[in-house]
Nucleic acid binder design. Sequence first.
DNA 1: CTCCAGGGCAGCG
DNA 2: CGCTGCCATGGA
Length: 266
Amino acid sequence: MIEIKGDHFDPAMIADSGQCFRWRQTGEDRFTIPAFGKVLNITQTGAESFVADCDGVDWENIWRDYLDLSEDYGRFSDAIMTSDDDYLKDAYNKGCGIRILRQDLWETVVSFLISQNNNIPRIKKSIEALCEEFGRDLGDGIFSFPTAEALADAGDALSDKRFGLGYRDVYIRQMAEYVRGHGDWLAGLKEMDRENAYRELVRQNGIGPKVANCICLFGLHHIDAFPIDTHVRQILEAHYPDGFDFERYKGFAGVVQQYMFYAKRL
DNA sequence: CTCCAGGGCAGCG
DNA sequence: CGCTGCCATGGA
């Protein structure tokens, strides 16, 4: 057990933010978080105080970074709340506890391949089914996210109806086989800047502009990436008819995007 | 029944 | 370039 302090940090908002699909609320103020082959249970004990069921080593080496608690989100809120963008200010007030997680890249790639033309409950069901079938048993009914090798070995089994992948099964299989055959591809992406990573990602079958931007934002932590999905497109059309000024939030447009996405889906 | 969901692709012009 | 039809699936 370790005690934590965290401003601009609300696990309930993050769990429902659409950036991660495996967080589960397991109590009044308790969340169970599988990542990197481990499981963290975090319980809110006050406005900005929490307890986590890990030791100090894992906290410093894994979870603090994963939860992005080293980043100062005050600078984002300041920029937004001192602007004259009333729609964004309202969105920020609704989603102010969101942080952009530093998730595992491979898990992010597969998760957002599944996300295309899909809805969040179905995405979650597909991912859990894949974890149960091809992941490692971590106890308490929780399984690790399957490796590229495991999904490549799965082959045609990915087309099984219980995974609910639909036509996306081909994308997952091709991606898993590619990563298995190119062991340094994921590591190479992490070395690239956003534009080069984006260009490399969209070369893959099944990864278009939106999915590539989600991988850049959630898997590579390029927080200036701005994925435009069906929700965000509707927001931009409804509230920014003369165009959205990306320059205004240069450097953290992806954080802005998350506030808007969360607020709309409430 | 149709429409929608954190889209992408191939086939047009 | 942009536009259109199609791609599985399940819930509303």
